[in-house]
Amino acid sequence: MKTTLLTTAAVMGLAAAASAQTVGFSQIGSESGWRAAETTLTRQQAEERGIDLRFSDAQQRQENQIAAIRSFVAQGVDAILLAPVVATGWDSVLEEAQEAEIPVVLLDRQVDSSEDLYLTAVGSDLVHEGEVAGQWLADTVGDQECRIVELQGTTGSSPAIDRATGFRNAIEGMDNLEIVRSQTGDFTRTGGKEVMESFLQAESGNEICALYAHNDDMALGAIQAITEAGMDPGEDILIVSIDAVPDIFQAMANGDANATVELTPNMAGPAFDALEAYWSDGTEPEKFIQTESTLYTQDDDPMAEYEARKDLGY
């Protein structure tokens, strides 16, 4: 790693060859476990690459983020990572960064400013996540008839809409797969459990073949509901969900869950890759870098995955 950096420095012909690159990171806050994990992973990635990371927690306020970016510009950092709390209102501060010739990389969320104002955006494709989950279910059940129940995210939120769309794209045209019930569980465990209980009442349990949950927390609640109804989650009812939080791996290790699609909190890895390439020879990356939506099943050593994730702050 150090060698790479040295080479980079040599190629760029900078006087301060030995000193590490400095990157400012304006994070939204720590409203969810996933966000906390993103922060932890960004710090880890920076440390591994020898990057000096300046971290700023905006506590959900755009004005804090703008102030942080101005301060990064004043400090003359080499790049800025920004996880924007809202989509609008970034033009002027991004222009200031551009005038100072500091590249900005957006993490996880998009802004509505002109593409010229930032280097690239790293994010996941929510529709694609749903497609991966649907594809896994289609492959797993094969030609068998399968009645599916769906736990949706908060009604009207973009993850709920996109993950529903992706899943339906994947199973389209397969007559043996049918979504028989669909209801919102608000992305929470309590919601997942309560709604799953009603699914079990309404569809008389043994007629449900699979559950698709828009996030792992709802799936974990639903698993409890299924267990308490005297059935075996993972066996009697297949369970696939999205996010890949640590607890779902534990459930997979226990045989209670079958598959999860990762929404990686490692947005910083691809971001740093793009930055390093840009620093070394000025390579302009694509304007959107899609993170991988990796599928994990019970065959992927879930216990090891759990151990790897449990300390990330989820």
């Binding site: 409203e31 969810s32 608000d186 992305f187 929470t188 465990r189 309590t190 919601g191 459990k193 927390d217 974990l220 609640g221 409890q224």
Partner: peptide, 16 residues
């Protein structure tokens, strides 16, 4: 009851 029910404390959503 809410915490015991899901065997976990969800500070963001419990009782919301």
């Amino acid at each position: 009851i809410a915490t015991a029910d899901i065997r976990g404390a969800d500070a963001n959503n419990a009782g919301l």
